[in-house]
Write a protein that binds this DNA or RNA. Sequence first.
RNA 1: GCCAUCCUAGCUCAACCGGUAGAGCAGCUGAUUUGUAAUCAGCAGGUUGGGGGUUCGAGUCCCCCGGAUGGCUCCA
Length: 653
Amino acid sequence: MPEKLLKITVEGETAVEVPPGTTVGGALESVSGKLAGRSLAASVDGVLRDLSYALAGDASITPYDASTPQGLDVMRHSASHVMADAVLQLFPGAKLAIGPAIEDGFYYDIDAPRAFTLEDLPAIEQKMQEIIKADLPFVRREMPRSGARAEMENAGEIYKVQNIDAAEGDVISFYRHGGFEDVCRGPHVPSTGRIGPVKLLSVAGAYWRGDARNRQLQRIYGTCFPDKKQLKQHLLRLEEAKKRDHRILGRQLDLFSIQPDIGAGLVLWHPAGGTVRHEVEEFWLQEHLKRDYRRLYTPHIASERIYHKSGHLENYADMMYSPMDIDGEPYRVKPMNCPAHIMIYKSGIHSYRDLPLRYCELGTVYRYEPSGTLHGMLRVRGFTQDDSHIFCTREQIRSEVFGILDLIDVMMNTFGYRYSAFLATRPEKSLGTDEEWDYSTDALRNALEDRGLDYEVDEGGGVFYAPKIDIKLTDSLGRGWQGPTIQVDLNLPKRFDVTYRASDNTDTETVIIHRTVLGSMERFVGGLVEHYGGAFPLWLAPEQVRVAAITDDQAQYVRDACAVLRNAGIRAAADLRNEKLGFKVREWQMAKVPCLAVAGPREAAENLLNLRVRNEEKAPVAGPVQLDKLVQTVLNQVESRSLWPAEVDLRQA
RNA sequence: GCCAUCCUAGCUCAACCGGUAGAGCAGCUGAUUUGUAAUCAGCAGGUUGGGGGUUCGAGUCCCCCGGAUGGCUCCA
């Protein structure tokens, strides 16, 4: 008797009928051989499956090939299995831990008999090619949890046992290709031959489960793309990112340095970097003053008493520097600005009529960061936060957060960052009552919605004392950066007994909103260097206009022109060197100065400058210009803080 | 802090298996007075990150310390 056929909908449109037990691949085959041929995996009623998955009922399937994020992910995961296989063949006795696909590639953590070095990678890669070329099918095997666990335990696969314990469901799956088998949820590509070109990139130590108390494993990073061209493009992108590395540009453009004799993680801002920072700070201050923030300065050291009171000493002692003895009392270098701001608030009595009170400070703090985590300006031990604390009533949280979001929008747009918002809610370990958390989380949510800002909810992602809004930035290379954060503090107001006199004459707890827009000057400026690739917009450029003479005869003319520019507040420098123009142009280009104004005999005779700008197409003026016209143009761009002449269109979402 | 790799002139890099440190750029001096991405020549520049060891001999091999890089952990 004929079996009842299954109704299979493919990609939501084409429908086919197939007998029960037909594989996903088979069903696709009956739609189109081409479709089946390029698919790597498919979602069946929303669950990602192998093409070898046998269909048991009516289903809706969406196939994924290597051009889709899902397909690519599966392919990279399969590549990580192949890498593990290769490693086991070359290094018998290694134990496998875990090997997922990640953004842009994959890795595998391996407990190896010896540490891997970069020199080991070519051999592993070679072996991988062989396995891929052999086109071995991936075969799925399922076992009940207990059996799978016993099997791995017998095999001495201690990490796999733990993986099984952490896995969900009663059935544990294994994937085999050739002589290699691994506990794995899958899915995988049909066979190793379907894996695109692979490239192993780096080795690193990585703790099992990311916990420093656990054994350190060997991690190998690799990547894999659908075709050679895309792999090559990716490797080129990595090169490009390397060229924009703020540490390299920082040296080339003489922006900053970090020197062992000063100390690791302590930044020396050179004149050029200092200028960029100053411009950012000026802008920051202007925007804050416009919004009725009050500027504060607080000391760099303080008695330990304040940090006992704030709880920092109890919770963060290992990131604070050792105490110093001052008149027999222990003092500490400041790790955070909040206690000092609170003490300023508490120096007097506040009426509800005073609130909100918005304090801000570019406050320099010092924190001990483990040596291995230091990274150029992005991760340092001394940094200046753009810190602010808003003291307000509960009712004002919503409108204050709204205002902060506005400030963030203005500032991030000015720098040309796109951004997205995340609402981080109450974590498991936390202080405060449900009522407090609900109220403040709702206030944050409402403010986001008032602004019509899309956001994702980061469930349980808040700090133990506060729900928060995190803003993530996307730079010109499409990379993500931690951006502004807004937190409603449910802890410090209690610890410090921060109150205001309410209209009914009772002392009521003041709400403290912590927020930072830039993060730290070090990190932010470091990020800007990479964002702009060192080619700063005019308003930020350390040197804005370079005026070059063709021969000595124009020296005085050039000096005079520079003086005019400087008097107008423009950062101008003269290039009077005894060199050919081509040489000066080249150096000007490499220094990434926005404008070059050339003066030869012709210009000098007619009181002109021949202007060349870094991004010619977008230049408001170019060629011969009057000096006052040049001054006006530059000042307009500076005043509007335009991104000109940035090389990329940064503002478009 | 942990694992791996690395540290040679101001910068970027050379120096075979251990045989006594070299180039380009930058700098200085001179010539050249130059029209939109490198004019030519000369000179100077180093206790090879610091310290110790092995060796007849160490930039090279070993140990300790410092720093950097890629990660882990953490995070502004």
